[in-house]
């Protein structure tokens, strides 16, 4: 019966202080690495490539000193949806474009239901990808303080400033969005507890009273958004009160510095990513 704590338990975006190599890496290097690996992930559909990439992600978790259980526990609330989506994909999507030299076996064909081995491959690969992306996003946000992430992002967007891209503003918006996640999660927990205390169906009954709980949660969306708007307004006032006037001329508390280790990490990951992308059609299965 940990339902309420679960609502609040969001692992992505939560900085976990530490002193690993990954923690000490420059945020710009980390963002680059995550982008490269995500790209590699999204174009590879073969089993072997995904096994290798999964192993790589697990290795990165190890290097970052975060517990795998912690990262995976963040997937749990989404599990019902993932399972439902996977089942639908498996049942109705028998002819996907996946790279594989394995022969395509048709398991079942009956009306709209069409289950094949390549459909199964797509489902399994999608699951692996989902976990990989979770891991990458977790590594990035669990090892980097929000402010550093913001500075990193801003620096990376700066070259586009000439084209009129407001780098500082974009990174600020991104960071505020991330910052609001735990706040909204906490507010959701508060509202759910308040409703439950007044006789609503949340958290009563077993795990499979899913439908009633879902309906009760739906009612919480409106007050949650109202609260978010109220908080956003308060934030505007607070920023104005502290004389925020856009990005121009702002200096920083933290100066970022790229070291040689960051360069090597980027290089290795770039090579890996390019390799995975280049040879995406050459994996044997």
């Amino acid at each position: 019966m940990q339902d309420f704590a679960l609502l609040r338990h969001i692992t992505i975006g939560q900085y976990l202080p530490g002193d690993s190599f990954v923690h000490r890496m420059d945020p710009r290097a980390k963002i680059t690495v995550v982008l490269l690996l995500s790209l590699a992930l999204t174009v590879n559909t073969s089993y072997l490539a995904n096994i290798l990439l999964l192993a790589l992600c697990l290795g990165l978790i190890r290097a970052a000193g975060i517990s795998l259980r912690y990262v995976l526990s963040g997937v749990r609330p989404a599990l019902p949806f993932i399972i439902a989506l996977s089942l639908m994909q498996l049942a109705f999507y028998g002819n996907p474009s996946v790279t594989s030299r394995l022969p395509v076996i048709t398991f079942l064909r009956w009306g709209p239901i069409f289950i094949t081995s390549s459909g199964l491959q797509l489902v399994l690969v999608s699951l692996a990808r989902f976990v990989d992306l979770m891991i990458l996003a977790s590594i990035l946000t669990n090892t980097t303080p929000l402010a550093h992430l913001a500075y990193g992002l801003e620096d990376m967007l700066k070259p586009f400033g000439r084209l009129g891209v407001p780098a500082q503003e974009i990174s600020l918006i991104f960071i505020l969005a991330l910052r609001f996640v735990p706040i909204l999660a906490e507010q959701l927990e508060t509202l759910a507890k308040a409703q439950a205390s007044r006789g609503a169906d949340i958290g009563a009954g077993g795990r499979w009273r899913f439908w009633r709980t879902a309906r009760a949660m739906l009612v919480l969306i409106v007050p949650l958004f109202l609260d978010a708007f109220r908080r956003a307004e308060e934030l505007i006032v607070a920023m104005e009160a502290r004389c925020y006037a856009g990005g121009r001329g702002r200096t920083r508390l933290v100066q970022l510095r790229m070291g040689w280790a960051d360069g090597i990490a980027i290089l290795i990951c770039a090579l890996l990513a390019v390799g995975f992308i280049w040879f995406r059609k050459s994996f044997p299965f």
Binding site: T190, L191, A196, S197, R198, G199, G203, V219, P223
Partner: peptide, 21 residues
């Protein structure tokens, strides 16, 4: 739980954040 929660009513800290209607 429903009977229990009807018997024991809690006004939480920051009650102003608990309105949902």
């Amino acid at each position: 739980l429903r009977r229990l929660r009807q018997m024991v009513g809690i006004v939480f800290q920051h009650p102003e954040r608990q309105l949902f209607e």
